[in-house]
Each structure stands twice: as structure tokens, then as C-alpha cells.
Computed example of a mutant assay.
Amino acid sequence: MDWNDLKYFLEVARGGSLTRASDVLRVSQSTVSRRIAELETRLGTRLFARHQTGYCLTDEGRELLGRAEAVEDNMLAFERGASGLAPAVSGLVRLATSENLATDLVIPALPAFVARHPQLRLEIVTTTATVELGRRDADLALRVVRPSHGNLKTRRLGEMTHGVYGHRDYLARHPARGDDPLAGRAVVTWDEAHAHLPAAQWLARRAPDARVVLAASTLRAQIAAVRAGLGLGVLPDFLVADTDLVRVLAPDQVFSDGVWLVIHADLAASARVRAVADFLADAVAASALSGRPGAASC
């Protein structure tokens, strides 16, 4: 059996639709449909029940799912091991990180790195969600949350401190009530879909009765709102370069996150992944995020 057939089966099973599977596999929906039909014919059984709401696994499909995932784990381990044997710094490396780290830290430092390694191509996946390195969604990650499970090697590169900021004009129009700089002032925060993020949780605990004037799905939008004078926001200090923004609460009163480099253990010896990892470590060391690294190394 072709390993690629199992890829189609697994992606449809995980996403429940041809559309999601085609997006992940980067092929057309008709290709996914055809490959699933061919696999079912070859196995002599129906793997999915087709409904208007999507594709659902049949009993036979559920029986085979665990076995397909075991094959996938073995194939991915084989691919990771093989990639570590290549000595040249060339090929594709997928990096998972947040949008603000990508746009304000990684990308500005890329020109010199690209010039040094012209045969290497970097693909950046920007998301606030957890990316599975074991599934090859990415080869390495730069995160502010240390992963708690998986065959991963981690290294603390620095620290991202946070403060509460407001535009000086907004602060002048809305003086603090007493000793609490948040009292009586509106706030800008993450939307409900991102309420699990540390900044949203801290603000909800610290100022549960504050009037939320804007809830946004990106940090960029929140920074723009604070600059526009809509209210206060919990922002990473390294992103605030605007002299019109005033910090009303310092990191020791808010919170800080470690900046973690995460690599799947099977890829730690890969020349191209190591090159990107070293580049990220240098970029953090040269930035306002630099801090005392931990003892563990990738």
C-alpha cells in the first residue's frame, strides 16, 4: 500500500471534510475524493459515511484509524531521521511562531540569514494555536509557552515581559481613580476565541469589572486600538516603540513569559534545522527579548 494513501485517509478523518484535507495536503478536493475512493476499493470496505455535514468514519474506518496513525508515526520518525543525515544547509524548514514574533523579530533579521544560506527556504506558520511538531506541522517552533509533552528538545532563549499601556492623551482625559491605574478606564483585550491566552486571563483576573471597549483577534489590532486612544491594553514591552504610549503597570506587576525554542528530538541533528535554530537564538539575543537562557540546549 502507498503511504500517501494513508495520508489522505488520516486528513479526512481528522478534518471531517474534503475541503480541510485538501487545504492541509495542498491538492484539489477532487483529488482527495478520488484517492479515498481508490483506497476504499483496494481495501474492499467503506471507510467513511458521506453526509451533508461532512465525512464521518464508519465502524471499519474507526477500526483502521489507530493502525494508520501508528504507521504515520513510524513514517514520520523515519523521515525525521533521514533529514538529519543531510549535511547541506538546504531544503525546506517550517517554523511555527506567533505573528508578532514573526513580523517584529524573525523577518527583520532574515536578510543576512538568507544571504548566508541561499539554498534554504523558510516557511513560517503564524498561529496562536499549538502546532504539533511530531506531525510535521512544523520542524521547530519559537513560543512563549514551554511544551509539556512530546519527544522535544527545548531551550529558553529569553523573556517576553508585558506591561499595561495607554496613550498619553487617553490617560490625560481619564485620570486614574485612586492608586489603581486601571480603575475607571476602558480596556482593549483578546476576543473570546483567544480568552485562554495569558494576557486575556491576567486582565480578566486583575480588572474583572473593566469596560471592554474592543476585543480583537490579533495583537496588532490591540496595539492600534491603544495608539488610537481607545483604552488600556496588556502589551509585550518589546513591541512598544511609540513614545506616545505610557506604561502604567510594569512587568513585575503584570507577568512575563519565557521565549522557548522547541525542536523535535529527531531533527536536532539536521543541518538545516540547526541553522534556523542558531539564527533564532542569535535574533533573540540581539533583541529586547534577550535574557539568561536555561541550561537545556537543543
Rank of each mutant, 00 (worst) to 15 (best):
S287V: 14
L110R: 11
A277R: 11
E159H: 07
V226P: 09
A82I: 00
H149N: 08
V12M: 12
E192G: 11
G231S: 10
A269I: 02
Y8Q: 09
P293L: 06
A296G: 03
P181R: 09
D209K: 14
R206I: 06
C56V: 12
C298T: 04
H117Q: 09
E79L: 13
Q253H: 13
Q201F: 01
P108Q: 04
R50A: 09
E192K: 08
V24M: 05
V106I: 15
P175C: 04
L47F: 00
Q201E: 10
V145N: 09
R227L: 04
L232H: 03
A200K: 06
A183F: 01
L232G: 05
G163P: 07
F78R: 14
S287K: 12
F279Y: 12
L133N: 10
L182N: 08
L267F: 04
S217Y: 07
T31D: 03
A215I: 02
R155D: 12
G15I: 01
W202I: 13
R206P: 08
E69H: 07
T128E: 11
Y170E: 06
T97W: 04
A269P: 04
S90C: 10
L289W: 14
L280N: 06
W3K: 01
D5R: 14
G163S: 15
V164S: 13
A21I: 02
L261Y: 09
R121M: 04
R206F: 01
T103N: 11
H117L: 04
R227A: 12
D282P: 02
L249V: 03
E99K: 10
A49E: 15
W202P: 15
D278Y: 02
T154A: 08
A102G: 09
R14F: 03
A271V: 00
L76H: 02
D104P: 01
R121D: 06
A112I: 01
A283D: 14
S90F: 01
D252C: 06
T58D: 00
R177S: 08
T218M: 08
V24C: 03
L214R: 15
R168L: 11
G91K: 06
E72W: 13
T103Y: 02
R94A: 08
Q253T: 06
D59P: 00
A286T: 15
A70G: 03
L239E: 11
A221D: 15
P118Q: 04
D278T: 15
L105K: 02
E159S: 05
V240W: 09
F78I: 13
N151M: 11
L105N: 06
A250H: 08
G229R: 10
S148I: 03
C56T: 07
H174G: 05
A96D: 01
S83E: 12
